[in-house]
Nucleic acid binder design. Structure first.
Lengths: 302, 302
DNA sequence: GAAAACTACTTGACTCCAGCAAGTAATATC
DNA sequence: GATATTACTTGCTGGAGTCAAGTAGTTTTC
C-alpha cells in the first residue's frame, strides 16, 4: 500500500480514536478556532493580528471579532502599538491565561480518559512512535545529525539493521547476521581505542548510520567496515561526512593506507568511495550469504 | 514530559502539518461532515441512518438533511427497508461513488503535495511510525501475538534491546552488550536444531519478547536464556506463554531438567519462574556489568 | 389486544461560526 | 505629496450544526 494512503488511513482512525474533530472544545463556550487563537496568544511572541490570522488560517474579520470578544471578557488587552499606530499589541491578561489553562487541563483530562484503558507503557510507546513519525515528516537536516562513538544498543541496532536491510534488498540469507554480530562482538571486546573507532550518526535518539575504522592485521593499514546509512538519511551528504570522519580518524591514528571490501551492487557506497579517492584493486565473483555477488576491494593512501 | 502531553503536542503539530482542520474539504461543495457521511456510506455495511449518526457523532436531524441533499443530487437512494418500514435502506448510486472517488483522489493529491518536499523513504518511514503509534494505542491482545522461530534481524534486535533495557533500568555498563551478542552469534552459528530453539513473540512485524532453550553442557539438562518481554507487552500472559513454549520444547527434545540463572532484581521474571515450578538452587552476590547484583540459579525437573 | 413506550426518521426554528467585501486609518513608496 | 499598501474593523450573509417537536411504524406490557 502506498505510504500516502497509509497516512490517510492513519488520519481517519486517529482522529476518531482521539476525538480530534469534536467541534466544540469540551463543552466550553469557545469554538475550536477561538481556542486555537487563545493558545497562540498565550505563546505571546507578540505577533500582530494579521500574522496570527495567517498562521491559523483564519479570516481576518473573524479574528478581529474574536479578539474583540476576548477583550470584552477581560481576557485580552489590545493597546495601540508604539511602533505602528495601525497595529495593536495583543497581551493576554492573567484571567485569559487562567481560562486557557483550564481549557488545556480539560483537554488533557479528556485525552487521558480516552487512553486510560491502555497500560502506562503503551502511552509512552505511542508518544514515542508519534514523535518519530513527526520527525520523519520534518526534513532531516544534516546539521542536526551528530557523529558520536558507539554506545549501548548501537551494536545490536547495527546487527539488526544489517540483517534486515541486506535480507530485504539483496536476499542475503540467515548466515549474514551472525557474521555481523561476530564483527561487533569482537570490536566491543578487544577494540584498541587508540587505533580503532566507530562513528554512529544520530539525530537525537535515532540512529541513522555508521562507519568503523579498525586494524586490518597488516601494520599501518586500516580497514573500513560497517558503512551503513538508513535509506531516508541518504542524499544529505551524511555518507560523505561519515567517510570523512573515518578517514580523518585513520590519518590521526597514524595509518598510511586504508582498505575496504564491498559488493559491486552497492552503487551508492562505491560512488562515495571513488569520489573520496579510493581505487578499485580487486574484483571477484563469489557466492556468499546465499547470493551470487561480485566482491570488490578498494584502497586509498592516507 | 508526560506521554499525554507529548501526544497533545503531536496533535497540534500534526494537524497543522497535514492540514487536518481545513473545514471545507478541498474547496468541494461538501462540508467535512458531509464527506465523512459519504465515505461511511461507501463502506455500505447497510447501517440505518441512526447508527451512522452515532458512529460519526452527528446530529440526527442534520444527518437527515444531509442524506436528503445527497438523494436530491442523485448520489443516494433511500428505499423503505423491507424489514422495518420506519427505516430506509441507504445505497450510494454509481454517481455518488464517483463523487466520493473524486474527493478521495483530491484529498490524496493534496496530501501527496504537502509531503512532496520529503524524500520517498521518509514517507514510508512516517507511515510506519504512524501505524506503529496506532497499534500502540490499540490494546494488545495476547492472541494477536504469535510465537515463531528466530528470523533475520531478531538477534540484532535482542542485542539492542537487552543492552538498552539493562542499561536504562539496571545501570549495566557497556560490557553487557558484547556478552549478549556473543551468545546470539554462537546460537546462530552452532545451534543444534533438534535440541535448541528460540521463540520470538511478535505482533505482526513488531517484536515483543523472546525465550531460548539451549544445551547446558551437561547431557539431559537444558538451559533457559534470553527471556525478555517489552514493558508494554507485560501483563497479558505473554511471559507465561513464552515460558510454556520453552518448557514444552524442552520436554519434547528429551531433556529431563532445565536450569537458568537470573538476577534477584528481576522480580517479575522470578515470579513467573516460581509459578511455573522452578526452584531456587543457589543465590550469590556478584559484581557484574558494573553493578552489584545477586545472581540466582533456578532449576526444574521436566 | 389495546394502550403505552419506544424507535427511526423528519422538519421547523434557531444559533453562531466563518467568509466576503467594503470600509477607515496609518504607513510606505515613488 | 499623491498613490499604493498595510493593519485592522464592520456590515452582510450563507450555511453548518443544534434543539425540540413532530410523524409514523414497532415492541412491550398488562
Amino acid at each position: 500500500m502506498d505510504p500516502i494512503d497509509r497516512i490517510r488511513a492513519f488520519n481517519r482512525q486517529y482522529t476518531q480514536l482521539i476525538g480530534l474533530l469534536s467541534r466544540t472544545y469540551l463543552g466550553s463556550a469557545l469554538s475550536l478556532s477561538e481556542t486555537r487563537v487563545l493558545y497562540e496568544l498565550s505563546l505571546g511572541s507578540g505577533q500582530p493580528a494579521r500574522t496570527l490570522a495567517r498562521m491559523l488560517d483564519l479570516d481576518e474579520g473573524y479574528l478581529s471579532r474574536v479578539l474583540k470578544g476576548f477583550e470584552a471578557r477581560g481576557w485580552l488587552i489590545r493597546a495601540p502599538a508604539a511602533s505602528d499606530a495601525r497595529r495593536r499589541d495583543l497581551a493576554l491578561t492573567a484571567e485569559g491565561r487562567a481560562v486557557l489553562a483550564d481549557l488545556e487541563r480539560r483537554a488533557r483530562d479528556d485525552l487521558a480518559a480516552r487512553l486510560a484503558p491502555l497500560p502506562a507503557p503503551a502511552h509512552a510507546a505511542a508518544a514515542d512512535a508519534l514523535e518519530t513519525a513527526l520527525s520523519r515528516l520534518t526534513p532531516l537536516s544534516a546539521d542536526a545529525v551528530n557523529l558520536r562513538d558507539i554506545a549501548p544498543g548501537d551494536a545490536g541496532w547495527l546487527i539488526q539493521r544489517h540483517a534486515e536491510y541486506y535480507s530485504e534488498n539483496y536476499g542475503f540469507d540467515a548466515s549474514f547476521e551472525p557474521l555481523v554480530a561476530q564483527i561487533l562482538t569482537d570490536f566491543l571486546n578487544v577494540r584498541d581505542r587508540a587505533t580503532e573507532r566507530a562513528f554512529i550518526a544520530a539525530d537525537g535518539a535515532r540512529r541513522l548510520g555508521s562507519i568503523f575504522c579498525v586494524q586490518s592485521g597488516t601494520p599501518g593499514v586500516a580497514k573500513l567496515r560497517l558503512f551503513f546509512l538508513e535509506p531516508d538519511a541518504r542524499g544529505i551528504g551524511l555518507g560523505q561526512r561519515l567517510l570523512d570522519a573515518c578517514l580523518g580518524f585513520a590519518r590521526g591514528a597514524g595509518y598510511r593506507q586504508m582498505t575496504l571490501w564491498t559488493h559491486e551492487s552497492h552503487r551508492a557506497a562505491c560512488a562515495i568511495y571513488a569520489k573520496a579517492g579510493f581505487t578499485l584493486t580487486a574484483s571477484k565473483p563469489v557466492h556468499s550469504f546465499g547470493q551470487d555477488l561480485v566482491e570488490q576491494s578498494f584502497e586509498i593512501a592516507l
